[in-house]
Simulated scan of single mutants.
Amino acid sequence: MKLIFAGTPVFAAKALEALLAAGHEIALVLTQPDRPAGRGMKLKPSPVKELALQHGLRVEQPLTLKTPEAQALVSEVGAEVMVVAAYGLLLPKVVLDMPARGCLNIHASLLPRWRGAAPIQRAILAGDAETGITIMQMDVGLDTGDMLSVHPLAISASDTAASLHDKLAVLGAEAIVSTLAVLDSCQPTVQPEDGVTYAAKLSKEEARVDWTLPAADIARAIRAYNPAPGAHTLLAGEPLKLWFAEALDGQGAPGEVLRADADGVVVGSGHGLVRITELQAAGSKRLAAREFAAGRSALAGTVLGA
């Protein structure tokens, strides 16, 4: 098919790569403007732009799709479908109606659960047993369009937002290719009213660990906020980031470090224990518990968060 592709991060680049490999004509790529990044804060192109330029594709980076100029970019292509994946810009109705067969979104949840900005992290936080990819016909609502295909994926007890993102990126790429291949016979399904949840944008403040919560909730939160915004607490008044954890049976005062050894830093909570196996002190790099504990002989008995 003749497609327009709109996307920005690695999640979207995986889909673009798959569409190219499947032989689709990508007549136009839309992506976010280059952003400052790194220590030098130099402008850096998005992963989608980098991939598109490697393949000699036309790339446009409008600040908005609400202007006549930006809308002309879409209309003049005469695309059959626009594929959208984590683009980051609102598509007004006039743009949604431009491709002959509309706009399809690669959404990283099993709709109608987790509509919105952070479906991967919210699924882990909630303790969901599975998530997945929904290929959706876009409309003007927030992830409210009819579903064309649904592709479930189990969430493992060891998944972080980073690992689940990578799995879903691969699944999303496969899903959009397979859905386009049978688009003529797809029967759109209206999303049910029951089970609608919203995946609100993440904040740094919510990623601060509340040690009075049950250990299972804390461990899920630490995994859900990896890599961003990063679960954090205080150690002797200094910031401490926590990157991986699991819940254990047992009991200890909330935030108290019961032991710190090669197996992990074990901390009390409102119910159960949290074993943290990867940590990062301020001004340091991420360390396995073995390395972190080796330089801190007096860690046991301290209280995190104080």
Score class of each variant (00 low, 15 high):
residue 284 S to W: 08
residue 39 R to F: 10
residue 92 P to S: 12
residue 58 R to V: 13
residue 263 D to Y: 09
residue 134 T to S: 15
residue 205 E to V: 12
residue 159 D to L: 11
residue 80 E to D: 14
residue 220 R to M: 11
residue 140 V to M: 08
residue 238 E to D: 11
residue 241 K to R: 15
residue 275 R to G: 08
residue 31 T to L: 07
residue 126 A to E: 10
residue 44 K to I: 02
residue 55 H to W: 10
residue 234 L to V: 02
residue 86 A to G: 01
residue 187 Q to G: 05
residue 39 R to N: 06
residue 199 A to V: 00
residue 164 L to D: 00
residue 155 I to P: 02
residue 42 K to T: 13
residue 113 R to H: 09
residue 137 Q to P: 07
residue 200 A to M: 14
residue 33 P to T: 13
residue 300 A to N: 07
residue 107 H to I: 06
residue 103 C to S: 01
residue 115 R to C: 03
residue 240 L to K: 01
residue 128 D to E: 15
residue 46 S to E: 00
residue 83 V to H: 06
residue 240 L to F: 04
residue 252 G to F: 00
residue 32 Q to T: 08
residue 65 L to Y: 01
residue 80 E to K: 13
residue 264 G to H: 00
residue 227 P to D: 01
residue 63 L to T: 12
residue 163 S to V: 08
residue 138 M to T: 03
residue 122 R to V: 06
residue 277 T to F: 12
residue 56 G to M: 08
residue 196 V to N: 09
residue 195 G to W: 05
residue 195 G to A: 01
residue 84 V to L: 12
residue 276 I to R: 01
residue 237 G to P: 12
residue 72 A to P: 11
residue 69 E to K: 00
residue 45 P to L: 09
residue 47 P to S: 08
residue 135 I to Q: 01
residue 300 A to L: 01
residue 287 L to V: 04
residue 247 A to T: 05
residue 291 E to N: 14
residue 14 K to A: 05
residue 260 A to F: 02
